[in-house]
Design a protein around this nucleic acid. Structure first.
Length: 298
DNA sequence: GGCCAGGACTCAA
DNA sequence: TTGAGTCATGGC
């Protein structure tokens, strides 16, 4: 079995990250225990199943599906870096956060939480389309339906570990196929059209990463089914771009209300003012605000 | 039964 | 550029 040790960066808490992944939802793309997460991922065109845990100094990655070639270890290491956002020094964010009168507690209560990414940008876009305008519980249910029907899986100890369906598979579906899984007609259309674009190579993560934040948003919004909310969600959650703010997000607005940072949900000035206090860390602020919405730790 | 949910689109003015 | 109407389905 291949094992990878990745030194923990400063201001990193594996438990906090794990807790965020879990929250109270039913995510079909990983399995979580008290101290580990197990997930199927794509490395160099090959699906492998990994379990991530920690020891005193390291993040410990075990590949359950057999030995990895040396060059794939690098790809795996990069995947973990992306997933847990390990390459970022978040100390400047903590300085800003600690200094804030009503948000400072987060630097202590959520200490070491990283912005948990969705490295596969196709998956990230599909997920944000699925999540548009429906409650999260139902959104996770829809995701499970499409993953279990069209994704691939590897069985380890009798448990199926799924990967998100590939564009090539979804590109061949009809709208009726997804409607049968309780997708609305529009969402079915958006996702199939998107899959065709990815399959044709007309859009890719590599291409998006080369653009400025503004151009990323512009490119994404030009696609059918992606509005300003979704585009910024993708910047924040998949492109490691900290300028992503999912404007108008109901969860974000609720968190701002909870902290008495806005008077009402159209208080754009107050919102702009808050984010202006966190230059370069907007997406982290959103992530921490989302974290504050979840059930408090016992 | 009614309101809401980690929105986007179209079309009118 | 802004606003209203539409889509669409489950959770609570």
């Amino acid at each position: 079995m291949t094992t990878l040790l990745i030194p923990k960066p400063p201001l990193f808490s594996f438990k906090e990250c794990l807790w965020f992944l879990n929250r109270s939802y039913d995510d079909c793309l990983y399995h979580i225990t008290d101290n580990s997460v197990t997930k199927a991922i794509l490395i160099d065109e090959q699906t492998v199943v990994i379990t991530v845990t920690e020891d005193q100094e390291n993040i410990v990655v075990n590949v359950l599906t057999g030995r990895l070639p040396t060059q794939s270890k690098t790809a795996l290491s990069t995947y973990i870096d992306d997933w847990f956002d390990l390459q970022r020094n978040i100390e400047p964010f903590y300085k800003l956060l600690s200094a804030h009168p009503s948000l400072g507690y987060m630097a202590t209560d959520f200490a070491g939480l990283r912005l948990m990414n969705i490295p596969d940008v196709f998956e990230a876009i599909c997920w944000s389309i699925i999540g548009q305008q429906i409650n999260l519980t139902f959104a996770y249910k829809l995701k499970r339906a499409i993953v279990e029907k069209y994704g691939t899986y590897i069985v380890i100890d009798g448990v199926k570990h799924y990967t998100f369906p590939k564009p090539a598979v979804l590109a061949l579906l009809s709208i009726e196929d997804l409607k049968a899984l309780q997708f609305s007609r529009q969402k079915a259309d958006y996702i199939i059209t998107l899959a065709k674009l990815f399959e044709a190579g007309e859009i890719s993560k590599a291409q998006l990463l080369q653009l400025s934040s503004a151009d990323k948003v512009k490119t994404l919004v030009s696609l059918k089914g992606i509005g300003i909310w979704t585009a910024n969600y993708v910047l924040m959650k998949s492109l490691n771009d900290t300028n992503g703010i999912p404007h108008g997000d109901v969860g974000l607005l609720k968190a701002l209300e909870d902290h008495a940072l806005i008077i009402n949900r159209k208080d754009d000035k107050a919102i702009a003012h808050l984010f202006s206090q966190f230059p370069g860390w907007q997406s982290y602020l959103v992530h921490y605000l989302w974290r504050s919405l979840a059930i408090p730790k016992s």
